[in-house]
């Protein structure tokens, strides 16, 4: 390799290396802000790495699985409340007034956006359904029901 080409190779490589280093450090610093949501356990106990707990009145998103049997609908309006759980001990109640997405059901992963009302309840103005990466026909889903097809989101 001639020296000029070697120099260009060096410059190009250091450009890539420097940029990835800068980007990596930025992302590392931003880590908790890039997370879309808190898990119920993180609302109660604080973030895993930093221990940062959300304050009451703070706008946040909470993501977890709808606890089976916890969905309470108001018969006269669209008001609904349900509990979100995760694979740790956390449990947070979400209050929502609006139309739920098609995928909303018990056992489904949900991300709710709203304000923290008390230590373990959230007043949501938006409820989004989170689904997993498994796709299968209904017959197959019936066959594996009770197995591990309903993963907790984490």
């Amino acid at each position: 390799m001639n020296p000029r080409r070697k120099k260009r190779l060096l410059i190009t490589c250091s450009l890539i290396f420097g940029l990835s280093l800068a980007m990596g450090l930025t992302l590392f610093a931003l880590q908790q802000n890039i997370d879309l949501f808190y898990t119920p356990n993180e609302i109660l106990e604080g973030k895993n790495e930093t221990g940062v707990k959300p304050e009451i009145g703070q706008r946040l998103r909470v993501g977890g699985m709808v606890l089976t049997g916890s969905v309470k609908r108001d018969p006269d309006s669209l008001k609904v409340s349900f509990d979100l759980v995760d694979n740790k001990a956390g449990q947070v109640t979400v209050y929502f007034d609006g139309i739920l997405p098609d995928l909303f059901r018990e056992g489904q992963g949900i991300v709710a956006q709203g304000t923290l009302k008390s230590k373990n309840s959230v007043d949501a103005f938006e409820v989004l359904a989170k689904h997993d990466e498994d796709y299968m026909p209904p017959e197959v889903a019936d066959a594996v029901k009770g197995m591990s097809n309903l993963k907790t989101e984490q």
């Binding site: 997405p101 995928l103 938006e126 359904a129």
Partner: peptide
């Protein structure tokens, strides 16, 4: 939009 309930979410 039909599945999550939103056209766009600012997730990573």
């Amino acid at each position: 939009k039909p599945m999550w309930g939103a056209w766009w979410v600012w997730d990573a």
